[in-house]
């Protein structure tokens, strides 16, 4: 699949400045935002588990940086202790290691106590690419969605990632902020109205609704909507950047106002966005839901993120196919 981008009206200087500002991977943008925050709030702590790069970034703020080493259980436990005693820890690890290796510490120490720990993870979904299945986290959203008190955020690009980090800083409870590994194309060409728990409507439509979470799934949903529009099918596109608490109102509105919902995620088709949307629609009434995501298997193919998603069946073409079925226009 070719590089995904959004059609845009570029006004040269502004566009260039925006591109430059958000040129890096989301995790780099979040690190920069965290450093700025830490300079204004001495309670903020950057807690590292040897993820690389943070040590240099925080060289000027040694009092607000602590590396616990490659020890994720201790990372979460210590962060909970720090938060209980009045600090605001932002812990850093890979999504898979937060979700499964340190799962119990997240459950009992962080989420169970409703402590203001911010778990900032990279390598969410299949973004670890060729690193292989040990580093993939196609189950992270499902696991984190089961944690009481935990807010689960999945920004679609660097612009949202920055907003999500800033929003998490002032959030009263624990937050799981899921980022990818590498740079992904920007979804937003201007500041977005990011609010925790509120889906962003990226395109209006009344035939079908595409609900997506994660950078490539959102981009693919937009591309599918464009293809559908060319065929006269109007697709609403919701960027569900908050998996928990889910914007149930937006889902129910989609269920009432369109003929069906296609969910798109870089996550297993069980437990994550698709699961959450199905729960709401099944319980509260609505429409058919088709889920696009990673099949129920260990992804052991070697490949980059887009290659893996394509082989998992997460593609704009498939999204459009499912949407056509729901719209009743499939041949």
């Amino acid at each position: 699949m070719t590089e995904l981008t959004i059609a845009q009206e570029a006004t040269a200087d502004e566009e260039l400045a925006w591109e430059e500002r958000y040129a890096g991977p989301s995790r780099d943008i979040c690190r920069r935002a965290l450093l700025d925050l830490a300079r204004t709030d001495p309670r903020i702590m950057c807690v590292d588990s040897d993820v690389g790069g943070l040590e240099n970034l925080f060289a000027d703020l040694p009092e607000q940086y602590v590396n616990v080493g490659i020890a994720e259980a201790n990372l979460m436990g210590m962060a909970a202790g720090m938060a209980a005693a009045g600090l605001v820890p932002f812990v850093h690890t890979l999504s898979g290691f937060a979700a499964t290796r340190a799962c119990e510490q997240v459950k009992v120490d962080v989420a169970g106590n409703n402590l203001p720990v911010r778990i900032v993870v990279s390598h969410g979904g299949l973004s670890a690419g060729h690193y292989g299945p040990t580093h993939h986290a196609a189950d992270d959203l499902g696991i984190m969605r089961l944690m009481p008190n935990l807010t689960v955020l999945v920004p679609a690009d660097a612009v949202e990632a920055e907003q999500a980090l800033l929003a998490s800083a002032g959030h009263p409870g624990p937050v799981f902020l899921r980022l990818g590994r590498s740079r992904t194309p920007l979804v937003h060409r201007q500041p977005c109205d990011f609010r925790i728990g509120r889906a962003l409507t990226l395109a209006d439509g009344d035939d079908v609704t595409l609900v997506a979470t994660g950078p490539y799934p959102v981009l693919m949903a937009l591309r599918a909507a464009e293809a559908l529009a060319a065929e006269g099918i109007s697709a609403r596109v919701l960027n569900m950047h908050t998996i928990k608490p889910l914007d149930e109102e937006a889902v129910l509105r989609a269920a009432a106002e369109t003929r069906g919902i296609v969910t798109v995620e870089d996550h297993l088709v069980v437990g994550g966005l698709g699961g959450a949307v199905c729960e709401v629609v099944a319980a509260r009434g609505g429409c058919p839901v088709r889920r696009i995501g990673v099949p129920d298997r260990f992804t052991d193919r070697v490949g980059g993120e887009l290659d893996l998603l394509e082989h998992a069946g997460v593609t704009p073409e498939r999204i459009a196919d499912e949407a056509r079925l729901l719209a009743g226009t499939a041949s």
């Binding site: 602590v66 259980a73 201790n74 979460m76 436990g77 210590m78 962060a79 909970a80 202790g81 720090m82 938060a83 209980a84 005693a85 009045g86 600090l87 820890p89 119990e104 510490q105 009992v108 120490d109």
Partner: peptide, 12 residues
């Protein structure tokens, strides 16, 4: 779990 929690409180 307890030693990590206490260590976090001590560090804080």
């Amino acid at each position: 779990h307890g030693l990590s929690l206490a260590a976090g409180a001590a560090l804080a």
